[in-house]
Nucleic acid binder design. Structure first.
Lengths: 208, 208
DNA sequence: TTCATTATGTATCGATTGGTATAAAACTAA
DNA sequence: TTAGTTTTATACCAATCGATACATAATGAA
């Protein structure tokens, strides 16, 4: 009956043999995310991580592999959590609404005191000694941009964008502004300022 | 007659006593700049720096102080060198011309094979374990933004911008786009793509 | 109980980090 | 030459890096 367990998610673990772990992996991941977010991949030392996660080193390695694998899991959690607004925005009915929600959602993060400033996918490993980590994060940024591009291509098919509009270039533009907002936020810009930037950026949006 | 030397720059050094240094500090600084630029402040190890600069460690410390002070000198050189176009752009006659030159100058850097991708002031220390370095770089970004703001305020006084235009917000917008372009460039975007982004971004610029 | 299994805590590994002590080398001035 | 000065090169420092060995603690199963 083992195959029944595959793909299933039981609320309470099925009481595996051995000593039970004394921490919640998801909570620990959240804490690790904050460290990577604030200090970047290289700036986050194992000692920073274990202190914030409130576990010791062997527990971290047993549960998450190593530093790189922990960072990858944190990236996964980041995209499902703090930037979940991005995926939701893509489901809005109009292209303009999608872009507005992305811009203003990004701005809103800047005033959330429970999370670090900026964007993990930007400052996590923009320039990083470890090239594989740098490429990993760059690939995730590209993936987000691709998702937006697909959404804008659909909008054009639906007549939601002018015939002369180029979804690829518009997606590049939107993501450029979003990443610029992340840099500005990391430098201390607040939600109000970023909202005003978003208002100006939206003036470039094509009208039907 | 010593005071005559103060403020003077002689082509050839006046033959000071002691063993002459075997390297050109400016060339060494350029090489250090490339390392910091590509790997960030933390990602650039002393061994990386000395190898690229082709000097040994004591020479580096004797000539530049320590890693932080070397980074500061590199930042100075960066602003006078690779991003010198920024200051020149501010001297153009119209606000629109200024912003166009900043945008297209930023885009042009992406295809320059002699320099790393992205912007040293963005990826040098966006998220950095050393808070003083992070703040230093953020302050320099703010300074650039302030200079543009001043330029746009002048433009408004001169009637070069509409009466309802807000130079502060426009400067925020321009710098947000510029920094977003830096992130995109670090992720592999080329000059052509960034130029198209700049074209769209310019559609948001106010018309008289 | 006893065994098997897994997690925890401590202590440590080799490698690398930023930073120096020291002595030889290369110059000027006398 | 000789003394004084500065740079160079080697070797090394303590601290920290990411990652583990090992013994103990805590569970389920027998």
């Amino acid at each position: 009956m083992v195959y029944l367990l595959i793909g299933m998610k039981s609320k309470t673990a099925p009481a595996l043999p051995g000593r039970p772990r004394a921490f919640d992996p998801d909570i620990a991941l959240d804490r690790a995310m904050h460290v990577f977010w604030a200090k970047g991949y290289e700036g986050a030392a194992l000692s920073d991580l274990t202190r914030a996660m409130r576990i010791n080193r062997p527990s971290l390695y047993a549960a998450f592999g190593n530093k790189v694998q922990l960072f990858r899991k944190v990236l996964d959690r980041y995209m499902d959590g703090p930037v979940g607004y991005f995926g939701k925005a893509l489901a809005l009915p109009t292209a303009r609404g999608v872009v507005e929600d992305i811009f203003f959602g990004t701005a809103r993060m800047a005033d959330d005191a429970t999370i670090p400033a900026g964007c993990l996918m930007v400052q996590g490993a923009l320039a990083c000694g470890d090239a594989s980590v740098r490429k990993e994060v760059a690939a995730r940024r590209t993936a987000a941009e691709f998702a937006l591009r697909r959404r804008l291509q659909r909008a054009k098919r639906e007549g939601d964008l002018p015939k002369n509009a180029d979804p690829t270039e518009l997606a590049h533009y939107v993501m450029t502004v979003v990443r610029g907002m992340a840099v500005q936020s990391a430098g201390g810009a607040g939600c109000d300022q970023l909202r005003r930037v978003a208002q100006i950026a939206l003036r470039a949006w094509p009208t039907r």
